[in-house]
Amino acid sequence: MVSSRLTPYYFLAPAILATAAIVLYPVASTLWMSFHDFVLYRPFDVPFTGLRNYERLLADEAFWISLWNSFVWVGLAVGLQFALGMTAALILNESFAFRSLARALVVVPWALPSVIIGLMFTWVYDYNLGLLNDILLRFGFIKSPVAWLADPDIALYAVIVALVWQGFPFFAVIILAGLQAIPGDLHEAAEIDGATRLQRFRHVVWPGLKGVILTALLLRTIWVANSLDVILVMTGGGPGYATHTLPLYAFLRAYSGMEFGYGSALAVVLTLFLISVAAFYVRRTMREAFR
């Protein structure tokens, strides 16, 4: 079979068509809305306002707080998910008695809907009736209960813990699959050559994993940056603006204020930030992949 120049496009066509059919229109209309004063309950009066929604952002205190929280949110949640997931994958790649059970149990957090996770953690964090305060009080780690979700200095981190718990199995599964693709012979050879475990990790494991890990990190960053259901359930963005992130703020503007124009502008700004992160990454990996 001779491959024509069109061959790759045949392989791509189904995915492109499906995506275009379903996603293109919503994305385009979000962009369109961001340039209009679009209030959902005023469908007959949608004036074009150009960049006014974007100008309004700059003077909006809540936007800046949300932006900063988003950085903290993405940085900590992705970083910790990765660290925990990597550790888990390395442990699970060893052989031990209850390995396949352990491999299956580790995915439990990932197998739960966000709404349930949000509610369970809220319940565990409860000031009066929560498990966490009760345990900490019993062991004497704290003198009086802590209002985990009502204290603005703690709330964001308390929510991040829930998200880390939910997300680390993703990294564990992805990295484990990558680890398994590394030929065992390589390990043995390295070990016979007297390489320490750290050396083996750097020279044998890491090169094989790098591509998968970078991709997983990028995809997870996008996912975490956009995820809001856990925050929504646990704090609704409060107390004050303490747990507002950009997508949550966009969501509140859109569905509570019904200001889809302004909400869309917030969403576009978030997307621009993510694109700049991704652009840096894509440039690097593409160069490597194009041999």
Partner: peptide, 21 residues
């Protein structure tokens, strides 16, 4: 008010009252 008041919803106020807090 309990220190958790800023984040308390209907469930917390009802549960706290029921639990005697």
């Amino acid at each position: 008010f309990p220190p958790s008041a800023p984040n308390d919803g209907f469930r917390q106020i009802v549960d706290n009252f029921k639990a005697g807090r």
